[in-house]
């Protein structure tokens, strides 16, 4: 194992998403693709919607010479992320924001996002509370689509984005949208678990 799953404790954070199959699939993907990540020599790494912070903390622990950032719309998740990073002796700078709206453009070499992807009513996407961790609205794609729109201005020229999806999000449709935006896209991992078929897209310029 290159990437250790960090220790975490969410007892104080009842409203933060508990690392689940989707989180672990992303960790497995990052581990499997680590040679490529090392090759681009990343300086700035960010996880959007970091929740407990396990993914960005695992990266921060392994990739010592990088600056690792995390954002989440849930302030409790930002505190959970910092707490997890400190617990594992790493440094992750958490920031309470939507996507990467308040960062300078095109600075990130690696972007990781496990979005809210579950098919729900649209109202749930913009409500308050825990539902925002998973509620994705129509096709589970409402948050994902907003993210895709901003993607051209987020990554550095050598940047790579890892995005988690489920079958209901219609990965092929999303891939076509990304092709239309002149990105390269591969499905780098898939996993069927009871009730969900998970995919990870690797997106690069």
């Amino acid at each position: 194992m290159l990437l250790q799953t960090p220790v975490y404790n969410l007892k104080q954070f009842p409203n933060v998403y508990t690392p689940s199959e989707d989180s672990f699939l992303l960790l497995d993907t990052l581990e499997a693709d680590m040679n490529n990540i090392i090759q681009i020599n990343p300086d700035f790494i960010v996880e959007i919607g970091s929740g407990s912070g396990v993914i960005i903390t695992a990266l921060a622990a392994f990739l010592k010479n990088t600056r690792c950032f995390a954002t989440d719309i849930n302030p409790e998740a930002c505190i959970a992320t910092t707490t997890t990073s400190i617990l594992n002796n790493t440094c992750v700078e958490a920031c309470n924001m939507t996507f990467l709206t308040c960062f300078k453009e095109n600075v990130f070499d690696i972007i990781v996002f496990n979005p809210p992807y579950v098919v729900t009513d649209s109202e749930e996407v913009f409500g308050n509370g825990v539902a925002r961790a998973w509620a994705g609205g129509i096709d589970g794609c409402e948050v994902i689509n907003q993210f895709l729109k901003s993607l051209p201005n987020l990554m550095s020229s050598k940047g790579i984005c890892y995005l988690l999806l489920i079958k209901e999000n219609n990965p092929q449709k999303i891939i076509n949208i990304l092709y239309g935006m002149k990105f390269n896209v591969n499905i780098v991992k898939q996993r069927k678990i009871p009730c969900e078929h998970l995919y990870v897209l690797k997106i690069y310029k």
């Binding site: 719309i73 302030p75 930002c78 505190i79 910092t82 700078e93 958490a94 920031c95 309470n96 924001m97 939507t98 709206t101 308040c102």
Partner: peptide, 9 residues
């Protein structure tokens, strides 16, 4: 607060 900027608009 606690090292975390709140940039939610």
């Amino acid at each position: 607060n606690n090292g975390i900027p709140n940039m939610i608009l």
